[in-house]
Design a protein around this nucleic acid. Sequence first.
RNA 1: GGGCGAUUAGCUCAGUGGUAGAGCGCUCCGCUCACACCGGAGAGGUCACUGGUUCGAACCCAGUAUCGCCCACCA
Length: 851
Amino acid sequence: MSAPLRDVPDKPTLEGLEDRWAPVWEAKGIYRFDRSKNRAEIYSIDTPPPTASGSLHVGHVFSYTHTDCIARYKRMRGFEVFYPMGWDDNGLPTERRVQNYYGVRCDSSLPYDPDFVPPTEPSKDQVSISRRNFVELCLALTTEDEKTFEAMWRQLGLSVDWSQMYQTIDDHSRATSQRAFLANLARGEAYQSEAPTLWDVTYRTAVAQAELEDRERPGAYHRIGFPRVDDPSDRLYIETTRPELLAACVALVAHPDDERYKAMFGSSVRTPIFDVEVPILAHTLADPDKGSGIAMICTFGDTTDVTWWRELSLPTRPIMGWDGRIIAKTPDWIESSAGREQYAAIAGTTAFTSKERMVEALTSAGFVDREPRTITHSVKFFEKGDKPLEIVTTRQWYLRNGGRDAELRDRLVARGAEIKWHPAYMQSRYTAWVEGLVGDWLVSRQRFFGVPIPVWYGLDASGQPNYDEPIAATTDALPVDPSSATPPGFTEAQRGVAGGFIGDPDIMDTWATSSLTPQIVGGWQHDEDLWGRVFPFDLRAQAHDIIRTWLFSTVVRSHLEEDALPWTHAAISGWILDPDRKKMGKSRGNAMTPIGLLEEHGADAVRYWAASGRPGTDTAFDVGQMKVGRRLAIKILNASNFVLGLGAREGTAAVTEPLDLAMLDALATAVDAATEAFEDYNYSRALEVAEAFFWSFCDDHVELVKDRAYGTLGDEGAASAKAALATALSVQLRLFAPFLPYVTEEVWSWWQDGSVHRSQWPTAAAVRTLGAGGDVAIATAANAVLTAIRKAKSDAKLSMKETATRVEVRGTPEALDRVRQSEPDLRTAGRVGEFSYLPHDSERLEVTVSL
RNA sequence: GGGCGAUUAGCUCAGUGGUAGAGCGCUCCGCUCACACCGGAGAGGUCACUGGUUCGAACCCAGUAUCGCCCACCA
């Protein structure tokens, strides 16, 4: 039975395939998830929701293509694939984008203005607006961005089920995030603590360990003398990079074994100018080789200060405010008039200015005995910030993640070992991060656009909040914003009134919500039927830079909530690097935007480039690979056009010719190799296998059997050739379908019913049955002889259609017999007049061509 | 300082024990009736280095060097 060939263009082209097929897939629901399937039939994928602000870059295209190849493979293997897509729209990037886009800033103290219209052009002076107005702008802008993103993903051909789309800021995500937080709170996994916190002074928010990065900055060691209390004429010199914090000094510290200072432990010095008495203490963290070997402890200059402060039980003397400026009010521990005068000189200034003023004052007062020594040192920054972090004491919410609990940490490390990592060595990044945690997960942020922390605090008779007994929201009220909603048992009139309540003003870290993507998309405590069908998920796909954040935090939430892994497999993608091997810059012009690339090269070509990048490996951006991919797609069109134009169809005749059988034998081996690679999540290997076979198929097999297929050697030989060609084409289209969805669908539509993307992944067994008795060595031998004939013509600078009068083949009797089996094909393909065979001892086939 | 990865042709990279591979680029040839957005042929590599295991090492082991990433350090 031969289906009619329909709609094959004379000159097939790649142009317009995206516009033709993407709407068809959507209309026919090719990628729609069928939830009637049971867990064993379902393959569920937890995808990273890309940050909706700003723009997608080629790195996104790279890793999302990898996931899509896996999804398409699994779908063809018969799994019902659950493949949703979300947008991570809450958090700082959106706030920053809204501020710049509209020229506004959020001021929580302002009332909501229902008639507010954002300026069309951002003005230099930012307009202050209420939190609700601000959030509305955030939502409006992200909605626009997300439409653009979705269009791009569709053009790239991601086989996601768009009816499963979610936003991390939508009602459902906020409710899920708050529900999970309340569960953590009820179990004691979420708690508050007032403690020194890494603080970004620009955004005025606390930041978590996972969000830190080090940056090299110029600095200077200032050598400052502290008069000893026992003998004020004797000064102890310390070296510091932060002289502006001298007023916050609480002690000096040296190593307990340091002979220079051993005798002084227990005595004290007075801080220069401020004249505050501080003790000289011993601690092993003090490094005798650094500076003068004795350090000034301030509250707080760096994380080591925090350690010393805690372990030596030192007092807290903060002078750094939340805004990054020295606190205006002169502290009461500074008593001398000279000290209070100097403090007034730095009060309200930035760290930079106060440093200048302190150095000037110390120098003119004679406490500095040498010029500052300039250095370059690394300083902690918030990864999205642009000023060094300060450390200020604040009340924050934490979630237990093993950072302060060895038993939990060990369990989470063990969870990591349960995950099937692709590639396997990525597990060590996880393990190293979890083992290196120094504290619990700080989840509260002093920002506006995000998921509010769903608690209130009662106010006592004097109006002071009772932080020890937060009033939790009830789950039926979620999502809730405590700044506008009223807690159970209160009326709105009691807000901010003694005996009443206040809402927690903070929002949660963006990871506190995105760590719940399995719960958000999987229907947790919302659609338990769906949850039972998709959880634990089969696959988490993401890039390696967010193992410490997204991957780890997802494991934490699932471990705490379900006592289970969130997914079985983790497929980790690499980064895209510039051609010069540097990490890809942000703006590289239009040629580098995903849309520009898709329009110039076509989706299949861009996908080919992405799929060529090995799992986990950083890959250079390479337009050349896209051109190769485009060439491959065009070749598929042309070769298919040729094979189908012959009238070749599967199953129309028995495959009888040795060369045809041999080709099928080789194809079966390729199917095995591609399948094995895909089962190991090695999509790039699967592509390589399919591609290698295909080029050999076109260049050698098709060329060899072409004339026979035309019928020049009789009907039976033609029928065998055509049946084998059609089978090979069908199989290869399916091998390529996960990588090149458009061109394979186009060709499939010419002669098959339904979508290639819902067709069955080819099995080697079926190909072997058709090619039973095939011996790949026959094809290898024929190719070798054909190559020798071509070489002879090429060396003689002749056209390939010139006749070779005689071809002499020497080899073992077995080898000669193999060549004989394809002699008729070799004769027509190579335009050979006469063949002769000479038995020979050498294993190597030798061919002499006479022209 | 610790960890992970990489080092193979001019370039980008496959190849995990059995006679060195692909694509691009380069050279030469060919408008052969699927394809000039093409086809054919060719040149080009002591597989970073040093030792070891093995009949045999690009591959396994130990060490060295260089590069990248992560972490620690930050007075």
